[in-house]
Nucleic acid binder design. Structure first.
Lengths: 118, 118
DNA sequence: ATATTATGAAACCTTATGGTTGCAAATATA
DNA sequence: TATATTTGCAACCATAAGGTTTCATAATAT
């Protein structure tokens, strides 16, 4: 199954888990106590978070402490950042930008099914 | 069903659609021609994107042009930004930050199932 | 030694997701 | 007018996702 940062943070429960762990590492039970769903459900979320590197688990006796690796969010951050100019720039300068960028636009605009020339 | 920006960008095809539309509005067929899946599948993705405001559709004759509303990504941006200090700050200043933040930490740490006092 | 706690994982269920094909309607073109 | 194109949507399908209960195991506490 697909398992990447974007998908991991798509679930609101997982985002909450991350925000909880941002403050300090917590063991699995403590995390689950802060949610209405079962421990098993929370455990599954934590597992997904570990599978894509957003959480690392460290055993300590019978407990396992979950630690957030928020630097993994960098992937999301840089993806979003590239579009920030589209909503932060003034409209006129944005238009300039768009005109420049369109000259190197590589998107195929016609022809997949009917091979028509534009 | 849940329909929010985080979920919308969780799918790689939808992220590609957005990056395509960032350059200029395209009609539904043109977008779908750039993917291997069927037009109907791409249409569904576009529909999801419109449902959460990341894309707006403007009719023009029989064609419908899809326009990216990238400012909607602001929601994702600000969520990620709040954690940026965790991977950008130097470690020692981060520790200072963590100590400050822990004093106002409201996370319940015990007691959901057994009501034990810490 | 026995009971309790913390955890991982299996089995199962329901719904969401992402895909397909096919058809109908509206617009554009020969 | 007859044909092409562009689109939306329905019906259907397989699998993923998110949840549950239950059980086994290892570590700790009594």
């Amino acid at each position: 199954m697909r398992r990447d940062t974007f998908q991991a943070i798509a679930d609101p429960t997982r985002r909450e888990i991350l925000s909880m762990l941002a403050f300090k590492p917590l063991n699995v039970n403590t995390v689950s106590e802060n949610f209405d769903v079962s421990r098993a459900a929370v455990y599954k979320h934590i597992k997904i978070l570990t599978e894509c590197g957003l959480v690392v688990i460290k055993q300590q006796g019978r407990e396992r402490f979950c630690e957030a690796k928020l630097e993994k969010l960098n992937e999301v951050s840089s993806w979003v950042e590239q579009y920030k100019k589209f909503w932060e720039a003034k409209l006129d300068s944005l238009e300039d930008y768009l005109q420049k960028i369109q000259s190197k636009n590589k998107i195929q605009t016609k022809g997949k099914k009917h091979g028509r020339k534009k």
